[in-house]
Design a protein around this nucleic acid. Structure first.
Lengths: 222, 222, 222, 222
DNA sequence: TATGAATGAGTGTTCATTCAT
DNA sequence: AATGAATGAACACTCATTCAT
């Protein structure tokens, strides 16, 4: 039984290796330029072997996306459903985003691959027709946060939650897509981080209720 | 010489025809699904002839994009560099956008094609590396408007113009991409127009200076 | 030794299981659409194990064919080498064929697989180059019957036995191939049985000597 | 205009070349072993060029088949719908078959390719679901001849025309398939021709009405 | 100028077979 | 003896681009 366990472990490892290789290739050349051959080569496997683990290119890409979304959720969930106020949660949420963003490329992957798969469908319409569990979960979580902020008086009571969620996600998406194109180091430079934060801050202010004091809306810093 | 002029005219006409056909195909099937064959067929020309006018697929697509941007500028420019306040100009700008958006598909074309061409490059990075004159011009014009609004006290004086311009363009981009995926009629429905306007409004509010009265920031209606 | 006997028995059993599964798959999806993977899965074994019992796909298929032929012979042999006249034997032979045909799919298997294996080789040439013992035996038996009928004056003395045997087998083959394509129930309908019998009857009449009374040539009924 | 005519001619020629190459390959290695690459190579063209003339492998094969059937019909039609008795027509029909068979490989092609295309469907069921104009026409013509022979008293009035046509075609099919596997010279040897004729003769005798004099049923010779 | 014709370089997917454990 | 895992070799089909006429 020790054997079969080891086998299982190795198999999972291979899966991971393949996914990791594909991810790397996506990051370096763009989703639209990768092919199964190359993924296999990078993973030092034959194409046929890759098909042993993923029955089609689409399934492989989907898995990559789900994986990244799962990862993102894992980083960000702790900040949801806490006793915090909506704004405090959002702040944490943003912190989690930045941290994850600084340490991995999950976000880039999520948006790039998703856009490729349903190429004609914008990211934030996915809800209706995707089969993506985790990507959807992110959407739902963000919607809840926005509702909470409305309920607590931070956000404009007239703000349409759906519109707001979409906008937020869109801006994330664009931010990430942009990030995907600049060298890794630049991506982690304080300047870039600041610009991202500013962008997020603008949106949050745009969401705010009339007359809400800006000090409550701060997303960055302590 | 009359002859050579006619020739020239006919040549330009043909260029336009090709571009128009390509545009139509892009709108109906998406950039990623068109090929030179089809464009040629639709233009009732041979593939080789199309190559006579556009030396590569990329150049053709780029031209389409430029064309659409030129068109957009043409509609929107009248509202810039007028004696209006920045906010009034922005309001007009938005009106122009909506009108153009309602009457043609230029915006969709611009963003879809651009995204396809530098698929790994986000729209608002174009400045640095694109050869697109007119798309750039839009960026510059928007930047100026934002600066004016800052100068006139509508927008936060700390607002970074570049960040803001990029954000604005990004949101346009996303909006348009989304629009490109829904049926024509829905695209022109009041509900959809309203959602777009709300989104734009949120951004404008986000740009606003601290304590600026919201009534000044109104983008829609009279 | 009891152990090794059991082992041997189990081994044979496994062979049979594999063959049976392959047969079933052939019948349900056609020879050209089965693969080793599926056969293995159906037999609840690994592909590699299947290769332990049959060193190649071709050999496995050949075995299936042999098996079916053996089965056919077993059903049909009792009617050969009896004291009966050639015609009576042929009648019995036909009865045996029909009975077997109604109760199993051996005939279909034989012809379908054979045709697939030597797809460019017609069934009735097998003699020369096949390694199929039992299929050959059928040919020999049929040849003998025809010779007997000639000797007894039923068939044309000028009839070439080889030609006749081939023709007979061909017609069986075609009949069976056809049968393989219609639903099981239709295959056992009186109408279909009648058409098969008519076909066989035509051939027998074609073999008949000049002036032989047709009542002697009856293949069907009592 | 001379130019465009020449072009058209050359194009047709290329089509023919491709078909001819494919045909040759089919004859030498069997339908199931040819691929587009090889066809192209043999025709000294690129694969892509072959696809310019035939939009899929299936269409190419179908064309080959139709072509052969057309050819066969062209050779055989003169003998149908003449003032001749059915038996005389059948004799001529057989003569035409032999002549064509001796001079080309049309018959082989027809049966081999057809069997490959509808691999699970026996040749003589084609009627119901094939889109093959010419192959169908052959069936119809044969059916008519058989009916005429019945009407004229040569064939058994109880003979079912459909059964008979199928049988006839089947035997042709098998004959041809067999022929396809032996070297060209052997195929044209008197011995082989004689065996084919004998086979056909047997069937005709099998079709005959009770008591019809054999001299009327002669298929061969003068 | 216009075009019909040709093609090289892919691209996703399948399957019989082998081999270390 | 049994198997999970791996793979080489195919194969149908596509498309941007070139070139002789």
């Amino acid at each position: 039984m020790g054997i079969s366990e080891r086998r299982e472990r190795e198999k999972l490892e291979r899966r991971k290796t393949i996914l990791a290789c594909a991810k790397e290739l996506i990051l370096s050349q763009g989703v639209e330029h990768i092919n199964m051959e190359e993924i296999a080569r990078k993973a030092e496997l034959s194409k046929a072997t890759v098909y042993l683990y993923f029955s089609s290119k689409e399934i492989l890409l989907n898995e990559i996306c789900e994986d990244a979304a799962r990862n993102f959720l894992y980083h960000v969930k702790p900040f949801l459903d806490t006793g915090l106020t909506g704004m405090a949660a959002l702040k944490c949420f943003w912190g989690g985003f930045l941290e994850l963003f600084g340490n991995s490329d999950e976000m880039i992957i999520i948006f790039k691959v998703r856009n490729y798969l349903n190429s004609s469908l914008p990211v934030f319409l996915l809800k209706e027709q995707s089969k993506s569990q985790h990507v959807d979960e992110i959407l739902v979580a963000m919607g809840k946060l926005i509702d909470q902020c409305k309920a607590e008086g931070f956000f404009d009571p007239n703000l349409d939650s759906v519109t707001a969620t979409r906008l937020l996600l869109s801006v994330f998406s664009i931010t990430v897509e942009k990030a995907a194109c600049i060298p890794l180091e630049a991506r982690k430079s304080p300047a870039f981080i600041e610009e991202m934060t500013n962008t997020f801050q603008i949106i949050i202010r745009g969401f705010a209720g009339d007359g809400v004091d800006r000090s409550y809306l701060n997303i960055a810093g302590v």
